[in-house]
Design a protein around this nucleic acid. Structure first.
Lengths: 334, 334
DNA sequence: ATGAAAGCGCTAACAA
DNA sequence: TTGTTAGCGCTTTCAT
């Protein structure tokens, strides 16, 4: 592998000149432009590729950003839509010259393993944390990484956090069904087990704010566990019934299951969803739902961390706004 | 930041002793175990974290593996199911002490950009290539990276490639519909535009082998472009009609669209799919389809590249086998 | 504008 | 078993 020494020798200049010619920012020049041009030619003729380890060492920066997420084996592929966020992050990071390092953590306990290079060595300039982790992990990240963003996690502070407005998303879905005149509305979501994602609580609260005390609407709840909830739903269904699903996975599960019995919205029941995904846009665009552009949210998170690295200021936390997509799985009017 | 020099000073030993005590493999010991223990204690009391840039430099290895994939803006989020593969890769890599670097490439032309650090510097020990790229890129990767795996790409050679048996997947879906006695069978897939993914060609060929010359079955094709194909399908549907979809995105799109008109399988038509995904397993488990465990395929790819790095041998190419999942969207017998 | 040289943190070869 | 030392490739003073 050729290095700057080889180039320096061939060009008859010092290694310093080569370094400056190749990487010296366009600040005050320190090498005549002819020399620089000549050096660049030689470099490319020698197929020179800088040794980034050496550059990392001298600059004390890796220009690598980690993205933390949960994965197998305890909850394999917990949220498929996270991919959109990751791709959004990747677009901004690669545009800014940063590498995106994916860090899957398996267990919520004991996640800060000494054997994980991400925690035991120092090869990330910053970290974007996604998913639910222990508060111990959140604290560890804040303490051990100069730059961090908590993206759609249970961690919420004044700085460095980014979340979707989950309460509003619940409220929007509930209002839409109520407005359409459904007499019975069933909220279908995961149970509030130990340390659930904050959206599990907030979406329900948003729904409950609208429907908990609403006149003329019977409000019920169906907890997702196993498959029996699907049979329950079928039994309690009528044309006056609206279903609100926590996320698109549940919405699609409910939809495909009920369609097996010939029940389809909006004819036989109303279907609304507090969540969204690009895949839903592609395969189930008629679903009445609250939008969630995870790709844009990922881009925003990446911009926040890149900005904080360049300005040395911690970015203020932000709430990602949501809006209603009418779709076609609820009836148009009472 | 503390370094081995600090530790050496505090322990009254040489830096070499520290280096060996902390990282020296369990080979022949070069430091007495008491010393080693003491050194480890001091290191952790000083909250020592090795500088990986320095280690990369001396070892001439980064222990970082890249995963190349296509992305925005020309084809944003082209294949959501790729995430499963990536998570599978991640599980094996992180278990083996490698970092997973995600490399999104935007344009198929001009993808080998000088401004992309992955290509201009040397910070990856190996690369796993996913998705469709130019043959120029495939060649570049082979030339410039000691270790590479071509995973589900158009690139196929004797070594370092991993693919699903796409022809068989087409054949399995076709046979299932034929066996059930459908009189008309429609294949719904993307058009064969310029440089399509190899599965676009092979799945169709598999289907065509079975149905092209079959007696008593009318075989038709519907190309996916825009949304009009969905209306076409609806017009030509009957209880004697079976639909074969190229992938789960199309299958779900067809399914949700037709259900809007009250048409549901297996009552009103038969629905089979040549593809699979974890999300399908979760939300549409009754879909009759050919299995595809991308997570396992990702794990296998990662094992191939890790193995090749440790054995210095290029791994022979492999074909990932598939099998039929009966599901419940086609009728049981003729 | 240019070159010489120090040093980043670590590992490995060599000496003791 | 230990300590000393010479690099790894690059950037950055500091002289010239």
């Amino acid at each position: 592998m050729t290095n700057i020494k080889d180039i320096a020798k061939k060009a008859g200049v010092s290694t310093a000149a080569v370094s400056i010619a190749l990487h010296g920012g366009s600040g005050r020049k320190r090498v005549s432009s002819e020399r620089a041009e000549q050096i660049r030619r030689i470099a490319s003729s020698l197929n020179y590729r800088p040794n980034s380890a050496a550059r990392m060492m001298t600059s004390n920066k890796t220009r690598q950003i980690g993205v933390l997420l949960r994965n197998a084996p305890d909850i394999p592929m917990r949220n498929p839509a996270n991919f959109e966020t990751i791709l959004g992050i990747g677009e901004v990071l690669s545009g800014a010259g940063y590498l995106q390092v994916l860090v899957p953590l398996s267990r919520i306990e004991n996640e800060i393993s000494r054997s994980n290079r991400v925690f035991s060595e120092r090869l990330l300039d910053g970290i974007i944390v996604m998913d639910v982790h222990s508060s111990r992990l959140y604290a560890f990240v804040r303490r051990n990484f100069r730059h961090s963003i908590f993206l759609d996690t249970n961690c919420w502070n004044k700085f460095s956090c980014l979340r979707r407005d989950e309460r509003k998303s619940g409220a929007l879905a509930a209002e839409a069904l109520k407005r359409s005149g459904y007499k019975k509305i069933i909220y279908v979501g995961p149970g509030r087990g130990q340390s659930p994602h904050y959206s599990v609580l907030e979406r329900f609260e948003g729904v409950n704010e609208v429907l908990g005390t609403a006149d003329g609407v019977a409000f019920e709840t169906e907890e997702v566990n196993g498959a029996e909830y699907l049979e329950n739903l079928k039994l309690h269904l009528s044309r006056e019934t609206g279903i609100i699903c926590y996320d698109t996975l549940i919405a699609r599960t409910v939809h495909s299951h009920l369609s097996q019995s010939g029940l389809v919205p909006p004819r036989d029941y109303g279907l609304a969803c507090c969540d969204d995904s690009h895949e839903t846009y592609l395969t189930f665009p008629m679903l009445s739902r609250v939008d969630f552009n995870r790709y844009e949210m990922g881009k925003l998170a990446a911009e926040m961390i890149v900005g904080s690295m360049e300005s040395k200021k911690r970015p203020p936390s932000r709430l990602f706004d949501v809006s209603w997509i009418p779709g076609g799985t609820i009836k148009s009017k009472g």
